[in-house]
Nucleic acid binder design. Structure first.
Lengths: 166, 166
DNA sequence: CGGGCGATTGAAAGACTTCAATGGGTGTGG
DNA sequence: CCACACCCATTGAAGTCTTTCAATCGCCCG
């Protein structure tokens, strides 16, 4: 339900206080995990760490809130545009040099992430391509041709549901 | 994007570390707010409080995750059923005695909460009523006639999208 | 009684899904 | 080395669901 990149924390404590996490790595990764008891002990002595943890949780919360709005209020092509914009943002964050955006996800995974079907995703990508907002090198290698337009299309606005941005 | 009831915490810290919250009270409420600096100081000395705060955040996170699935994978009538089930659950939690469920929301607010239109919500409620899953006293006073069925209809399952529960 | 607001209902249009078929790439076995 | 099977992406057509546009109904209030 959310995308993470290098340096991010994952997981949370469920209602029973147990660590909960489900995820899938899109690339090779390195990850650290900590013993809960010892981590809490350290956190108790380091207000900064506790604050950072709380910050991570808050950040995840606002990210999920954003995703809710995307899924609840955006049409298929708009959702796909938002997804690409999000991906591009993460990509820049880790990989400053300009280069094609590697999705590391096939259509089926994208569809699942956006609550759509494979076919709709494919058609939406087609529209974005035809409008020259993006370009495709491979089916999972994207070039953002018009970042401003991409963000505009994928933007969540308060209006009902008809911002068919030309 | 989420429903809260008596005793719940609201709000979180945004990326800049500032308190962020938007909400709407459906009934008269009493609320407490705390000075951030002093609260943090107290939390630093009370690991239990810090843990409770972290728990509240985690709980909000899992609640939002659930909502994501509802909005992303359920059809209109299923979403409405889920909403009623959720409402009924909160209602029981605060108000154990059997009684009609007061929504405190009009159709427009429900529609917004579920990412649907007023008309669709109205039609979905009509279907639930016709199937004798719920009954209406007033437009915002509901009686749950078949709680099991309500939960079944509003359940998020892994299957694609065609569990037209008879 | 008329006006206004919320809810419901109907009809048509629009969007997405589902079913079905095709094309491109890759990997395997003959 | 090539043929074939397979997976993924794309495209087409039909079907289903939701939205949009409109009209009606009931209720409360002035």
């Amino acid at each position: 339900m959310a995308l993470r990149t290098a340096g991010d924390c994952v997981g949370y404590l469920d209602d029973a206080g147990r660590y909960a996490f489900e995820g899938q790595a899109l690339t090779d990764i390195e990850a650290c995990s900590f013993d809960r008891r010892r981590f809490d002990a350290v956190a108790a002595d380091n207000p900064d760490l506790a604050a950072a943890l709380s910050g991570a949780l808050s950040s995840a919360l606002s990210q999920l809130g954003e995703a809710m709005l995307v899924v609840g209020k955006l049409r298929s092509t708009e959702r796909v545009a938002h997804f690409f914009a999000e991906m591009a943002s993460l990509h820049r964050q880790v990989n400053p040099e300009r280069g094609p955006l590697l999705l590391h996800m096939n259509r089926s995974e994208i569809a699942d992430y956006l609550g759509l079907t494979v076919e709709t995703v494919s058609r939406s990508i087609g529209k974005l391509k035809k409008r020259s907002v993006i370009g495709l090198i491979e089916s999972d290698e994207v070039i953002v041709l018009d970042d401003a337009m991409l963000r505009e299309i994928g933007k969540v606005s308060g209006e009902p549901r008809s911002s068919a941005v030309g």
